[in-house]
Write a protein that binds this DNA or RNA. Sequence first.
DNA 1: TCTGGGGTCCTAGGACCC
DNA 2: TCTGGGGTCCTAGGACCC
Length: 441
Amino acid sequence: MSIKMDYSEELHEDIICVDVKSFYASVECAERGLNPLKTMLVVMSNGENAGGLVLSASSAAKKNLGISNVSRKYDLPNHPDLLIVPPRMSLYLEKNKEILSIFRKYATEEDILIYSIDEAFIKVTNVKKLFKADAYQIARMIQQDIFHHLNLYTTAGIGDNMLLAKLALDNEAKYTSDMKAEWRYNDVQSKIWTIHPITNFWGIGNRTALRLHRLGINTIKELALANPVQLKNQFGVIGEQLYAHSWGIDRSDITEKHLTLEKSYSNSQILTKDYIVRAEIELVIKEMADQVARRIRQHHCQTTCIHLTIGYSSNSNEVGFSRQMKISATNSTKLLAHYCLLLFNKYYSGAATRQISITYSKFIYTTDIQLDLFQEPDSQIGQLNLELLVDHVRDKYGFASLVHASSLTNGATAIKRSHLLGGHASGLMNKKGANSNDQSF
DNA sequence: TCTGGGGTCCTAGGACCC
DNA sequence: TCTGGGGTCCTAGGACCC
């Protein structure tokens, strides 16, 4: 028996959520002329170490060998047919662009929302007439189009809103033979309420599952039938959202989502060893401050907020710290490195360091220079021009063509990392390094 | 775990203002 | 000063996603 819910005020769109099956692994199969569904292949970052991480495993590797996306090299079975290949992030970015250009044949720019490197939402409500097709048929056209052009299989979820499309994708389309699933408000009680375990539901991780469990809520159905006031008291906004989601309700507008993203750019790394020497840690911070500064210059923005996170070694008694600081708008490497070091020196306890992360946020988009009142204007402009020149040379000849002498010393990681994109090998090992591309997806 | 990397969003609590 | 109160901005920390 089902319970009545009035959906007349909710969105009734045709949203398709598309995701490329095992994206990185499938691209590698396609490049080798191998069947992406039958080949056992994994893309592995840092494959030279025993701790190498599986970024993507083909479905055959997952099914036959039980490999998952965060498996380690030391976990992998020894199988003669298993192909282990290094990542080529720049290639995946290229394929991502080609897929996007296919999406644009089926919807206008503002009706497409890129969710990640291999996932996007497409609103097709307004083009059904044009294609003389319903959403399900349009999803099939998109899937076939991508397969013909790129030899990649995609899965598609279809729904009245973005949440339903995404849930249909994650919880059904991935397991059906035609790689599609359509979830409408009518299906909420039979489809959403039976998602199991509860952490398979979008937005519920282990921590939230545990807190729900303490309230006696162990299934989506129990969540939907819970007292929304109690949920709000316990979880705040998240509680209201969880409740709405359990009924398949999501009022977010795909076209407005474009405007509301609050952006930040960051780099982070887990170091290959514990760093004890203060100067060596400072050096890595300077290098990373430089990398992220370069990215924001490429996007023509200036940051007004920097954030430094230091994680200490597990051999240490302390966990580390995470601090941010407002600054006057800048994208100057020199200034940003200075501020990052300021934070570091203020809070560093002297413990062995294993992880470093630098984030810039709260951007202003302008080409004007915010002149510092306490510095000579000429020297500030000169500094910025110098940094733009350095960017230009690196675009042309690769990051490693022009580095501070300090990056050649022990402990420095910038040169090694200059071929990384999104933290993994770009596949471009020639002089024109990965850094001519952007790392954000 | 033999420490991956890049993001977004929410909350509590402190500082400051009127 | 044996407790004012509301609003806004900021920071640290938590949680989640791909």
